[in-house]
Structure formats: C-alpha cells, structure tokens
Design a protein around this nucleic acid. Structure first.
Length: 478
RNA sequence: GGCACCGUAGCCAAGUUGGUAAGGCAAGGGACUGCAAAUCCCUCAUACAUCGGUUCGACUCCGAUCGGUGCCUCCA
C-alpha cells in the first residue's frame, strides 16, 4: 500500500512518492509569536505532528521543519505596548508555546528555524527576484511584481482580475500593481533597532511571506516533498511563497501542499481577529492535554471541527478507556507473573495502517485503535492467555503512540487525570476518601441502604465508585 | 461580487479513482454486581439536504435548487 495525500495544489489525492526514496522533507508554517497559542494552533501542530509520527512509523526518514515567525508588525506593535523589545516578546511566546506543546505531546520539529536568523537568505532570494524581473525596489521597499509570475494563483485557484475586484486599493500606493506584495519593508522612524537590518535597499525588515521561502529552502532544498499549514494560509501566504520561491529558482517549491481545516467556535471560525478563541493554556488548566489531542484527532485534519465541551468530555472519556484498559492489562500480566515480551498483532497494525494511509485519516485510525483496546478488554475479561494479552497491549500502545496518545504509565496517568478532574469539579479527594471509609463500614455491617446513600451522595458530586476485591476506587468521569 | 469547501441516523463522524452506508456518544435489552460503576455482548440509517441527469449500478460523477462555512485584509 502507499500513502495517499490530498494535495491542495492539484485538489486531488495523490500517492506520496518521496523525492529521495525513503526520505521525506516537510515544512510547516508555524506560528507568529505575539500571544499565547490557541486551539487552532493546537490543531495545526497536532495534525502535522501526527503526520510526521505516521510517516516515521511507516519507515520513512523524515526531516521535519516548523518555523517561528519572530518578526512582524503585530509583534512590534505588541512589544511597543508592553515597552519591551520585539525579539524579547517573541522569545517569551516561543517559550510559552513549548510549554503548550509539551502538554499536548507535540514533539519538537527536527529544525525550528526563526525568521530573524535567516535575513541573509531572504536577501539572496530578493536579489535573485529583482535580477529576474520579478521584483522592484521603491523608496527602500521591495515588492514582488505579481503580473510577472504567470502561475500566480495556482494554489488558491484565483486569477488576478478576480483578486483585483476584491482588493483594497490604498491611495498614494507606491506599488506598480495593487496586488504586488512586500518582500522587504524599509525601516520606519521609531522602529526598534533590533528589528531593523541592513540590506542592499537600505535598512528595513522582511515582508510577511519571504521568511518561509528562505527557511524552507535553506533547510529542505529548492524543492521538497510536503509543505503544510492552516487553510487560512492558502491565500495569500502560501500563494506568495510559491511566487517568490519559484520565481527565484524557476523550480517547483513543494511537490504537495497540505492544509488543515479550522477549529470553529459556535459555527464560525475561531480566530484572533474575532476574539472568540480559546488558548491552549486556558484549556489545559482544566482538562488533560491528551483529551484535547484526542478531540482534535477525532476529525480528519482537512475537515472543520467545532470546539465544544461535550465533545471534549467524550474525548476525555475515551482517553480514560485507553488508560483503564492499559492498566488492567498491566495488572493482569503481573498477576499471571508474565515476564515475556508482547509481539505486535499484524492484522490490527494493518487495519490501522490502511486507515492512516488514506490521507492521515485519524478519525478512522482512532476507530481502529479503539477496536484494539476493546479486543484487549475481551481477552482479559475472558481470562485469555497472558501472551495474547501482552501482544494486544503492545499493539495498542504502539498504535496509540503513532497518534501521540497513550504514552504515559497507566497508573500515573489515571491518578493525574483523576486529580485534574476532581479539581475541575471542585471535589476534595480527602472528603471522598472519608466518605468511602464510611461506606465501607456500612457495607461491612450489611447496612446496604446507608452504603447506597453514600454512593449516591458521591455520585451527585460527580464521583463514581468502583468496588472490587482489592477495595473501592473512585473516578470523576468527564 | 469573485473563488473554494461543506450538508451522512437524536448528536459526533468515516466513506470523495461509483458496486450497494466504519466507528463513537446517547438510547433500549442482556451478562456481570448485594445495588452500582467499569468491562463485554446484542439492537439501533432500504438510506446519505432537495430535484434532475449520466450509468447495468451513485452517498460517491454532472447540472440546478435550498441551507451553512471559509478565503478575497493580519490569522493555524
């Protein structure tokens, strides 16, 4: 089987054929760091983190580059409001984003380049564009001449005249064509020196799109396999990136383009400009990051996903199921004194692989994973052979890991998740323990009505009891 | 106005190189339990917004209509 990828450039699912056999170079447009990241960013990072995990699991050697855009108008403005240096502000939010990524089990990219570290590469591209007649300098600015690039619009499927009708034409514009965009912006009075660089056209700073052209080609070569980002980057960001890169090199930039759908709030896009976004930080204060990850993987990456707490709770219960089952398997194997190694079950791996090979269909992949855990439960409940349990457990953990789920020690995860859930529901664990002790006494004295009353009392607070031979445990289901 | 995308059971969601509807939640029944919870089993769409067309055959292709969203301006 081959991996099929929806290519936004051709609007078709295509076989993923690596440029260099066995190797994949992938560039993903990361975040412009001027604020805490929101759940839309989380989706983008999780989607491509999962893509990379799956490609590696499939035996490909992946070079994953995800950038930080650490210089732009918003960063400069926000830094000005706070009275700090723009680069300091950017660094602060890069650090914050790393914290968020850790809570969502998003691995670091192999290379996380920063725009400000690639000024020389940007200059080289711009000079080439000027030399080839694709760019022109005016008063210290340099613009890309959109009409000079016949392929302009090939990604977003627009023609220049359509664009022009919707374009904002500013009076006194020095551009030759309203659709031309800035490659280099001349420094303006009052802009901090830290974000001003010397250039062949005078002091200034990069335009919005040039940084990605510089970074992706420096780290992955003139042409590479995959380029990704959010759907909102199709136009103008990626369209302009193609124009710049291909205008300068004369060669295709990326073989395939991948774009993830939006996270919506209510029925509209969640975005910074609408102010209706949830930060990752807000959510992880109350919810387990793994539940957030499971929620965002429950829809195929290209489709929109509506953020809601019911769905989050459902995802959280699914994570419960994974760890409860994993813990049950661990306990079963310990009880049977099984010390062998589990072997991955080929049929289950194949089902999962088939699902994921179809454009990284994590919704389907999650269904296959769920089925693996169900089989594990069946095997344990049926007092199956320890080797079979071990095989299923190893398989489940391996497949879950491809999705970036189920990596924690089950006992520790269950406890940590219960603690968070208790906090979220304002439940005091000490009080729960006290009530459980009282119920235990009542049961011992066969006062079942009293015991049930306590159970109901706890239930009303959201605490569920689990009686077993080993004693009474408790959970706070989402 | 231009360019795209979406519309599958009460809810969420796969299926988009056409061949006769995954999975989850909820619901109902059962096993298990002192009662529960957890777990497992069973049931749950002659039907895929609507209307036409192409085809031996369409949720899947084409057209129209209705409804929703996104992009065209910073945005994952």
């Amino acid at each position: 089987m081959t991996i099929r990828v929806w290519n936004s450039l051709t609007d078709k699912k295509e076989d993923l054929v690596p440029l260099t056999p066995g190797h994949i170079g992938i560039y993903v447009c990361g975040i412009t760091v001027y604020d805490l990241s929101h759940i839309g960013h989380a989706r983008m990072m999780i989607a491509f983190d999962t893509v990379v995990r799956f490609l590696r699991w499939s035996g490909l050697d992946v070079k994953y580059v995800r950038n930080w855009t650490d210089v732009d108008d918003k960063i400069i403005r926000r830094a000005g409001e706070r009275g700090i240096d723009p680069l300091q502000l950017a660094q602060q939010f890069i650090d914050e984003c790393h914290v968020d990524m850790a809570s969502l089990n998003i691995a670091a990219a192999d290379i996380e380049p920063r725009a400000t570290e690639h000024i020389a590469e940007m200059h080289a591209i711009i000079e080439k564009l000027v030399a080839r007649g694709h760019a022109y300098a005016v008063n210290g600015d340099v613009y890309f001449a959109v009409r000079s690039f016949p392929d302009y619009g090939k990604l977003s499927k627009r023609n220049l005249d359509d664009l022009l009708s919707g374009a904002r034409v500013e009076t006194g514009d020095i551009k030759r064509d309203p659709l031309d965009f800035a490659l280099w912006k001349a420094a303006k009075p009052g802009e901090p020196a830290s974000v001003t660089w010397q250039s062949p056209w005078g002091p200034g700073r990069p335009g919005w799109h040039i940084e990605c052209s510089a970074m992706c080609q420096k780290h992955l070569g003139t042409t590479f396999d995959l380029h990704g980002g959010g759907k909102d980057l199709v136009f103008p960001h990626h369209e302009n990136e193609i124009a710049q890169s291909e205008g300068a090199s004369g060669l295709p930039l990326s073989r395939a383009w991948m774009h993830n759908g939006f996270v919506t709030a209510g029925d509209e896009k969640m975005s910074k400009s609408l102010g209706n976004f949830k930060t990752i930080r807000d959510l992880t204060a109350q919810w387990d990051g793994e539940a957030i990850r499971a929620l965002l993987l429950s829809t195929q990456y290209r489709n929109p996903i509506q953020f809601g707490y019911d769905a989050l709770a459902e995802a959280d219960r699914r994570v419960d199921y994974f760890y409860e089952t994993d813990g049950k398997a661990e306990a079963y194997l310990a009880q049977k004194k099984f010390t062998g190694e589990g072997r991955e079950v080929a049929s289950l791996k194949d089902a999962f692989r088939t699902a994921m090979e179809d454009d990284f269909n994590t919704a389907d992949g999650l269904a296959q994973l769920l089925s693996t855990y169900t089989q594990l439960n069946v095997k344990i409940d049926g007092k199956g052979a320890p080797q079979d349990v071990a095989d299923l457990r190893v398989t489940a953990r391996a497949l879950a890991a491809v999705l970036g789920l189920g990596w924690r020690d089950p006992k520790a995860a269950v406890l940590a998740r219960r603690t968070l859930a208790a906090k979220r529901n304002s439940i005091d664990p000490a009080w729960v323990d006290e009530r459980i002790a009282a119920r235990l006494l009542a049961r011992k004295e066969k006062r079942f009505a009293d015991a049930d009353a306590i159970r109901d009392e706890l239930k009303a607070k959201g605490v569920e009891l689990r009686d077993s031979i080993g004693g009474t445990d408790w959970r706070v289901p989402a």
